[in-house]
Nucleic acid binder design. Structure first.
Length: 866
RNA sequence: GCCGAAGUGGCGGAAUAGGCAGACGCGCACGACUCAAAAUCGUGUUCCUUCGGGAUUGAGGGUUCGAUUCCCUCCUUCGGCACCA
């Protein structure tokens, strides 16, 4: 007898080789079919693939295969995010050239990826560190520059002292403001850097109408952009510099019109309660408003603030500090003279770096006013509701009209709803807790400010422009040239790519390695031809990954970043899968990038990726994040060798809710491995069954055959739905259940009947996307069907067959299930009701009483109330 | 502090219009096969029980004939943001 035991390692290798030889997964434009662009996040070339990579990829592959069987022309590409710090760090540590290290890793990872048996179209592989790729990364930079979206600016930027480079705002994470890559706390440095004007698209990025993305990602992006609505108000610097207590309303003050101070506020309705003003220590007008007597203390404070790290400055519980500048501003709504202070709780990086302080209605201003004994004027009175006394005593009773706040005993800042008081023309105006225009008080004051010319409606964002300069070697060069006479100009496009030189020293000096190269930076000015220097910083690698989905379209195309024919057919990406950790990084960058390219006329549509789904994270067996340092990394290579790819793929789908993830448990693989072995056995264990076939095939009762067919079509229906919804765990459990049914049917002598044959065929088609190798082997070599199972159409559900003819209906008496009655699926409500009431058990629990109420819930349940 | 997600057996999880809680699997126990073990197959497996039942989906309350599912309050865990004016 031929050995027909299941040896996954053998059949998997065999079919992978055949599929590759036959170019089975090559995706080519075919206008006769609807297209489906399925994309999974490309791996970084760190060296080894672990289950963190398998987890999004294997289920995504199953779904791509499902789509393909459903008549779509599917593009499912893969590539490598190959530029970046780890390569350079390996170079520093081990003396291996970053390029050598990276491409060696790619070879290994490509082998590992192939062992997964995915339907990747390898002919479209793209590597971001290839010159033919980064030529276009550079080209895109130039297009953005031409659009006015790339600019250079000197500012205080985040610097990672370990990685020796600047970082984008998004790449500084957590409470301790650490580097996203290495976890080192970042510091601030004043540097001139290249930025992309992402903030130009802030409002558009808040609009998710066209895309089907998880709420979680949309929320994270919305919060990150942090739009707040309010007003800008212009304060003048008082030129009368005599020291007059604030609040003593002096008329006839002269003012210095050249020194307008703009503040942003979300609460213009509290303007009348602004009793002082605070500048960030770095605010440009600080010097101007500081009086000679205060100069020393102001300078000392500025120095101290500059020395402190952001972490210290932004510590939540830190007590507020500040110093008086000696200067005064005029509150434009009531001409009050208010003192100007500097304090580090006001940040130069948000709004205008200057605030109007309203201590009565802002917690921070209140704390500051208390500490430095500044006046507190209440301008919002809580609603005088007898049912709801104002919290913490009665602040309203303390302050009266005209009270300058001296000796104020207001216990806390009040930020709730109420009525405006002490606010001139606005007294009595209602204020609620809504933001912006939705708040009647805010809205009225904004209109009034505009009519008076002292302010206007304004919106502010937390979102910052994208800092893309990196002082590192292993990245795409920024294709810009600096000339003494002509400033910064792009490298002419016909000279692209600006190649990264191989002969560099990678020393962690804090300077760009390219700067230390003896000749590389020397070039000529594209305008005048005189000697000039290249930009020696490289681009943030998130720039490379912002457009990789476009390069997959035509990775070797040399007339542009992508072939327009391919673009027209495949774009946009239909389904994108990957981790949520990139919510405010890659996923936001790539949306910005697409919109910028759209405005440059390079791409069409408003969004690059229509549907996004995030998988969860696979943790180590210790419930901690997998990492080499913790020693809890599970290597797929060994497990593939042990159980085969199909068992691993299906285990990853079966063991977790895909969108949740969870701790790794190698033992669980036994479950899917055992299941696949049982599948194998059912399809191959036939000698004695075959012998009895002709004699026994009629033995199966009509009922057995009918039930088998019903289960097959019910399963098909469920699995079809689950694939659409990314519910992989129930796909596998449904397949396991159906297998159990098929074993039962085999016991009942169903083998060989048309129902049995249909069941085996449909079973393998349903198995094909999740366990492609075993499905192919059984399809082609056991059922003897035409190669390949992966070119078959997804089966159609026969709704008639899926219907039950008898249904079991539970009967509740007073809310407890007491019996189950069997009725025909066609039974009407009355029939179900009478059958239920006729049950002896039900009658027993009714204790002879007449039912008060009988509810027949569809065909699902009968509820009797006595 | 603010925003978001989630709490179901020993474990992963199922229940997708408010209608049988615990599907499927892991693990465990017992049995068959075996000299034995592994593999395989079979049976059982939420808890309590006086064997009649009773309790049970983080806790408490509400709506309903009926709640894992809807509403309110609270607790816990995870993620994000955080002096953002």
């Amino acid at each position: 007898m031929k050995d027909i035991s299941y040896v996954p390692q053998v059949i998997e290798k065999k079919w992978q080789a055949k599929w590759e030889k036959d170019k089975l997964y090559r995706a080519a434009i075919d206008n006769s079919k609807p297209k489906h662009y399925a994309l999974t996040m490309l791996p970084y070339t760190s060296g080894d693939l672990h289950f963190g990579h398998w987890y999004p990829m294997a289920p995504s592959d199953a779904r791509a295969r499902f789509k393909r069987m459903n008549g779509y022309n599917v593009l499912f590409p893969i590539g490598f995010d190959a530029f970046g710090l780890p390569a350079e760090n390996a170079a520093i540590k081990r003396g291996i050239h970053p390029k050598t290290w990276t491409y060696k890793n790619i070879d290994n990872m490509r082998r590992q990826l192939k062992s997964m048996g995915n339907m990747f179209d390898w002919s479209r592989e793209a590597i971001s560190a290839d010159p033919e790729y980064y030529k276009w990364t550079e080209w895109f930079f130039i297009q953005l520059f031409k659009q006015g979206l790339a600019y250079r600016k000197m500012s205080a930027v985040d610097w990672c002292p370990k990685d020796n480079t600047t970082l984008a705002r998004e790449q500084v994470v957590g409470e301790n403001r650490v580097c996203e890559r290495c976890g080192t706390p970042v510091i601030k440095k004043d540097l001139e850097q290249w930025f992309f004007k992402a903030t130009k698209y802030a409002d558009e990025l808040l609009n998710f109408d066209e895309i089907d993305w998880p709420e979680r990602v949309k929320t994270l992006q919305t919060n990150w952009i942090g739009r707040s609505e309010g007003a800008e108000v212009y304060f003048r610097v008082a030129s009368d510099r005599s020291s007059v207590p604030a609040g003593s309303n002096q008329s006839g003050l002269t003012t210095d019109n050249s020194s307008l101070i703009t503040v942003f506020t979300t609460r213009p309705d509290t303007l009348w309660g602004a009793t002082f003003m605070v500048f960030a220590p770095e605010h440009p007008l600080v010097d101007k408003v500081t009086m000679p007597e205060q100069r020393t203390s102001v300078e000392a404070y500025k120095t101290q603030a500059a020395r402190q790290s952001d972490i210290e400055r932004e510590a939540v519980d830190k007590e507020k500090t500040g110093v008086f500048t000696g200067g005064y501003a005029i509150n434009p709504v009531n001409n009050e003279r208010i003192p100007i202070w500097i304090a580090d709780y006001v940040l130069m990086s948000y709004g205008t770096g200057a605030i109007m302080a309203v201590p009565a209605h802002d917690e921070r201003d209140f704390a500051f006013a208390k500490k430095y004994d500044l006046p507190i004027v209440e301008v919002i009175k809580p609603d005088p509701s007898p049912l709801r006394p104002s919290p913490g005593g009665s602040p309203t009773g303390v302050l009266r009209e005209g009270d300058g706040g001296e000796g104020s005993t207001i216990p806390a800042a009040y930020a709730g709803a109420g009525v405006m008081v002490n606010s001139g023309p606005f007294d009595g105006t209602k204020v609620n807790t809504e933001k912006g225009r939705k708040n009647p008080g805010v809205s009225k004051v904004i209109d009034w400010l505009a009519s008076q010319g002292i302010g206007k409606e304004a919106v502010n964002y937390r979102y910052r422009d994208w800092l893309i300069s990196r002082q590192r070697y292993w990245g795409a060069p920024i294709p810009m040239v600096y000339c003494e006479k002509h400033g910064w100009n792009p490298v002419p496009e016909d000279q692209l790519p600006v190649l990264l030189p191989d002969d560099v020293e990678w020393k962690p000096t804090g300077e760009s390695p390219l700067k230390l190269h003896p000749t590389w930076k020397n070039t000529t000015c594209p305008v005048c031809g005189e000697p000039a220097v290249r930009e020696t910083d490289t681009m943030d690698t998130f720039m490379c990954s912002s457009w990789y989905h476009l390069r997959y379209l035509s990775p070797h195309y040399d007339k542009g970043p992508f072939d327009p024919k391919e673009y027209d057919y495949w774009m946009p990406v239909d389904t994108y899968t990957g981790g949520i950790e990139h919510a405010t990084m890659h996923l936001l960058y790539t949306r910005f990038f697409h919109k910028a390219l759209r405005d440059a006329g390079i791409v069409e549509g408003n969004e690059p990726m229509m549907q996004l789904r995030n998988q969860g994270i696979i943790l180590g067996a210790d419930n901690e994040k997998m990492s080499k340092s913790r020693g809890n990394v599970v290597a797929p290579d060994e497990l593939v060798a042990q159980h085969g790819t199909d068992a691993l793929r299906t285990y990853l789908m079966f063991a977790y809710r895909w969108q949740e993830g969870g701790p790794w448990n190698s033992q669980g693989i036994d479950g899917t491995a055992r299941w696949l072995r049982r599948v194998w056995t059912l399809f191959t264990d036939r000698p004695e069954r075959r012998l009895s076939l002709s004699k026994q095939q009629s033995k199966a009762s009509e009922d057995v055959k009918r039930t088998l067919r019903r289960r097959v079509h019910q399963t098909l229906k469920r699995i079809t739905r689950d694939f659409e919804n990314f519910e992989f765990n129930t796909i596998i459990s449904s397949l396991m259940e159906l297998l159990n049914e098929m074993y039962k049917a085999r016991e009942a002598e169903a083998v060989g009947n048309p129902e049995w044959n249909e069941a085996t065929e449909i079973y393998l088609k349903m198995l094909a996307p999740v366990a492609p190798h075993i499905a192919e082997e059984l399809w082609t070599n056991q059922l003897g069907k035409p190669y390949s199972v992966h070119q078959q159409s997804w089966p159609q559900v026969d709704e008639e067959a899926a219907k039950e003819d008898m249904i079991e209906i539970p009967v509740q008496v007073n809310g407890k299930v007491r019996d189950r009655v069997l009725v025909s699926a066609e039974a009407d409500e009355d029939e179900i009701k009478s059958t239920a009431l006729a049950s002896e058990v039900v009658q027993k629990y009714m204790e002879g009483k007449a039912p008060k109420k009988v509810i027949v819930a569809q065909k699902r349940l009968v509820s009797v109330v006595v």
